[in-house]
Design a protein around this nucleic acid. Sequence first.
DNA 1: CATGACACTTTCCTAAAGGTAACTAACCAC
DNA 2: GTGGTTAGTTACCTTTAGGAAAGTGTCATG
Lengths: 128, 128
Amino acid sequence: MEKKVKPCIADETILKQRFLALRDTLDLLSGKWRFCILLNLHYYEKLRFKDFFEVSKGISPKVLTSELTTLEAHQLIEKSIEFTPTKDIAYYRLTQHAQEIWHVLNTLIEFGLSNRKEVIQSLHQNDK
Amino acid sequence: MEKKVKPCIADETILKQRFLALRDTLDLLSGKWRFCILLNLHYYEKLRFKDFFEVSKGISPKVLTSELTTLEAHQLIEKSIEFTPTKDIAYYRLTQHAQEIWHVLNTLIEFGLSNRKEVIQSLHQNDK
DNA sequence: CATGACACTTTCCTAAAGGTAACTAACCAC
DNA sequence: GTGGTTAGTTACCTTTAGGAAAGTGTCATG
């Protein structure tokens, strides 16, 4: 999922660890649908596979599978089964660990909101 | 620079504005070299075009130009000319407005640092 | 006036992310 | 046992981000 050739900076000590940490986080969020999935899961608490097609309009099952797999591998979401008398239902939900990323997303959102007012208006005309 | 077909969520009111704001911010940071450039500019304060090839190892002039252009369009960096007796030197530096994004980057870095210890070790073996 | 440094631009190419569509396997309802 | 729903696969195709390499225009220095 990540690119093979990764960006790289010169400084070996002070900057590098922070740089790698930043890249990790952005790798985690940069998939086209990742943050969409996380945001929806935060809002709806739990979602089934099919639900994502309703709340994340435009995603395909192939992409959804791969995004869910990646997010699960990074322990941001987890799959749980609810057993009912007639059948078992699989749900996806955020992990405890993902609560931390929620703070991150909020920071990004707050920046985006303030930015949107000033700068972005000339771009993104397509999504009023 | 942004993808034509953009991810989309269902909810029209509560979630949507926050979703768009989040996408804006991630669009801004998701370029392969964007955050590298920003981080380096924060660290070195000002850099010339050629300097980026030293501090951002692996970037090509074509990509550098397009990333700088985008960042400048979003008013995160600016080009300034320093006049010396013999010649003029062009520098890039962060704008006032970018100070705000520095807080954002720090949040991403802090998350990445704590995450790196727990989860990521099995991945990214290639960049100790 | 030639040579080199600087700041790009242009052209071409590749790899990978993502889209489309069809298919499968399991389960339940009727 | 047929049809529908769910949860995915699989195969193929398109788009686009980014890389490589060479070229351009402008200065300045020798």
